[in-house]
């Protein structure tokens, strides 16, 4: 696998219907939002988690596609049999040893190759990889208005609780949901970093696939209906790129349609425009979804 030769930027538009896309641990798991503008937020790491989960589902135990940071719900036995039989112990030089281990981690683990990882060493020499794929916080297009829903459960956890209720056996719970919101995630792929970790064109294709499909493998009671709606990729025809990223991101405008009165409640209430005519020379626009 040869590493990427091109810089990329990408924008993913995805929406949520009656769900909580990313809870805020500081606010009792209410959907994250910017307290000043009420714009909904989703952390970078939340999206990376979904990418990792998708890759581990799609690639299973395939060599080279292991996921280092796993959720324990993916309880696959990680017997990674066919490792290259490099004899690290023969290498005396500490620096070289670290490099070997670093390369090996990059070769075997998709998430190390894509996002990087901090690997501690005994000396000051820090085995650290910065991955080419960089995500920012996702932001909702319009302010969100989370709703709190109370729910009941027709059972109790302990016998003690049942006694207290004289056998009524009911408990109440709460759920937060966003009735509807369209979110935008902007991301970057650096070619020089890809060359340091060996992130290849095949890896990149897999990244696009995971961005398009990850929500379909991530359904749960809390998340409601989440779907990827549009993935726009800007491919520069060189390593360093041909245009400032902000200019490319500005080519994509997402607005609530004028005829939609009141709050948006469906994807159809938004108009997405990609100004393909203004794409600078040396940049190719690819619509992946």
């Amino acid at each position: 696998m040869s590493a990427l030769e091109n810089r990329y930027e990408f924008t993913l538009l995805f929406d949520v219907e009656n769900g909580n896309p990313n809870g805020d641990p500081d606010a009792g798991n209410m959907p994250r939002m910017d307290p000043e503008t009420s714009i909904g937020l989703i952390s970078d790491v939340c999206m990376k988690r979904k990418i990792r989960n998708y890759i581990s589902l799609a690639k299973g135990e395939e060599q080279g596609w292991n996921i280092y940071v796993q959720e324990s719900s993916v309880l696959s036995e990680n017997r990674q049999g066919a490792y290259d039989s490099e004899d690290v112990s023969k290498i005396k030089d500490k620096k070289e040893k670290t490099l070997k281990a670093r390369d090996w981690m990059c070769r075997n683990f998709f998430d190390v190759r894509a996002f990087g990882a901090v690997m501690s060493t005994t000396t000051n020499n820090c085995g650290q990889v910065r991955g080419p794929v960089q995500l920012s916080f996702s932001k909702s297009i319009d302010p969100i208005f989370p709703q709190e829903i109370s729910i009941t459960r027709m059972a109790v956890e302990t016998a003690k609780e049942a006694e207290k209720q004289d056998g009524g056996n009911r408990t109440m719970g709460r759920k937060f949901l966003v009735p509807y919101a369209l979110y935008r995630l902007d991301g970057y792929v650096s070619a020089p970093f890809a060359q340091q970790t060996g992130f290849s064109d095949e890896d990149l294709e897999m990244l696009w696939t995971s961005l398009v499909n990850m929500f379909d493998q991530d359904h749960s009671a809390s998340r409601g209906k989440m779907s990827a709606r549009k993935l726009v990729v800007f491919r520069h025809d060189c390593k360093l790129g041909n245009a400032p990223a902000q200019k490319l991101f500005d080519l994509i405008s997402v607005n609530k349609k004028a005829e939609c009165e009141g709050p948006a409640r469906a994807f159809a209430d938004y108009a997405i425009e990609v100004d393909a005519a203004q794409v600078p020379q040396g940049v190719e626009l690819l619509e992946k979804l």
Binding site: R49, N66, I67, Y68, V69, Q70, E71, S72, S73, E77, N78, R79, Q80, G81, A82, Y83, D84, S85, E86, D87, V88, S89, K97, T98, K100, A101, W104, M105, A117, V118, M119, S120, T121, T122, G127
Partner: peptide
């Protein structure tokens, strides 16, 4: 952080568990 020694050990043995459970 990822323990460096675990990586070299696993590389040497050729097999083993090398993951972090995020939760």
């Amino acid at each position: 952080k990822i323990p460096f020694n675990n990586i070299t050990k696993t590389m040497k043995r050729g097999e083993g568990q090398l993951v972090q459970f995020a939760d």
